[in-house]
């Protein structure tokens, strides 16, 4: 009997990352913000991007999304070098960025928001029935059960529900890479739980998810990989299953992991001045 879902192997030796940024440099005038930063994201996985304030996470995400031009470095999408000069070009590749402000229209309902600017037509008129069904199916696919009607205006939804709608919109448009910027930062416990579960499902449905977060607990709850930035550099890209909380915190605060070793396996620390090689390290 055919299985509904198959789990992809996690073995990166044989898997090309969907998104692979290497050796990214970026300066604002005389200030160099990124020094050879790197980030890889894989289909079906959540990659957490962590680092202190000012480590360069936002700048890297802006380069990734085409909002800022890169000064140097490589941008590979599905293994091919690409140029991403604008958010539109990023979207055309299948990269969706869900910003903290979510960019949802308060006065429109869930369906209208999910299809905003990409409405489906049937002849001259909008195909409301088809859009409604697709929106509902997408939310169900992510097991979002708390939204009672897809015709509710966004203004009537809670923070967690709004975040879920924004994530579902990315799912609906078949994005290959979804970047979520601090999705739980403004939410309470129950709402955060709901959003974390949706984030996890988004990856389990095959998307490459990049989660930018300050909350180590959220990172460990859903991430498969952790990419740590420190002062504009990527100091480690590790599997979440290979590191401890203490090691990640140390990487974030000092750019290196003191013992550098756990259970006899070195944690890859691509330290100072790492060039393009700071990529997908593995313990």
């Amino acid at each position: 009997m055919a299985k509904a879902r198959q789990w992809e192997p996690l073995d990166e030796m044989s898997v090309t990352p969907v998104l692979d940024l290497r050796g990214v440099d970026k300066s604002f005038g005389p200030v160099q913000v990124l020094h050879g930063a790197a980030l890889s994201a894989y289909a079906g996985e959540v990659t957490a991007l962590v680092g202190d304030n000012g480590a360069g996470k936002s700048t890297l995400i802006k380069c990734l999304g085409g909002m800022l031009p890169m000064d140097g470095g490589e941008y590979l999408f599905e293994g091919r070098p690409v140029r991403v000069g604008s958010p539109r070009e990023a979207a055309a590749l299948g990269i969706e960025i869900v910003h903290q402000d979510l960019a949802l229209c308060e006065n429109l309902d869930v369906v209208q928001n999910m299809f905003l600017g990409r409405e489906r037509r049937s002849g001259m008129v909008l195909d409301e029935a088809a859009m409604e069904e697709m929106a509902a199916r997408t939310l169900t696919g992510l097991s979002v059960r708390t939204i009672k009607s897809v015709r509710q205006p966004i203004s009537s939804l809670s923070g967690g529900q709004r975040q879920s709608v924004a994530i579902a919109r990315a799912m609906l448009w078949d994005s290959k890479v979804v970047v979520l910027d601090e999705p739980t930062s403004a939410l309470g416990v129950a709402q955060s739980r709901q959003v974390l579960e949706v984030v996890r499902r988004l990856a389990d449905r095959g998307r490459a998810v990049v989660l930018v977060s300050h909350n180590m607990n959220d990172v460990f709850a859903v991430a498969d990989r952790i990419c740590v930035m420190f002062l504009g550099r990527t100091v480690a890209q590790v599997r979440a299953s290979d590191v401890t909380h203490a090691q990640v915190v140390e990487l974030i605060t000092s750019g290196r992991s003191g013992d550098g070793v756990e259970a006899g396996r070195p944690v890859p620390v691509h330290g100072r001045g790492t060039g393009p090689g700071g990529g997908a390290g593995r313990g």
Binding site: E197, M216, N217, V219, A240, D242, T244, E262, A263, R265
Partner: peptide, 29 residues
């Protein structure tokens, strides 16, 4: 979800690398 950092840190140190490398931790759907 509230203590994932502790759970996974213990898993990283307490489980053998070969057994844990492919294990996925999930919440009931």
């Amino acid at each position: 979800l509230g203590a994932a950092a502790q759970v996974r840190s213990r898993l990283a140190t307490g489980a053998m690398a070969a057994s844990r490398e492919r294990v996925r931790l999930r919440t009931a759907e």
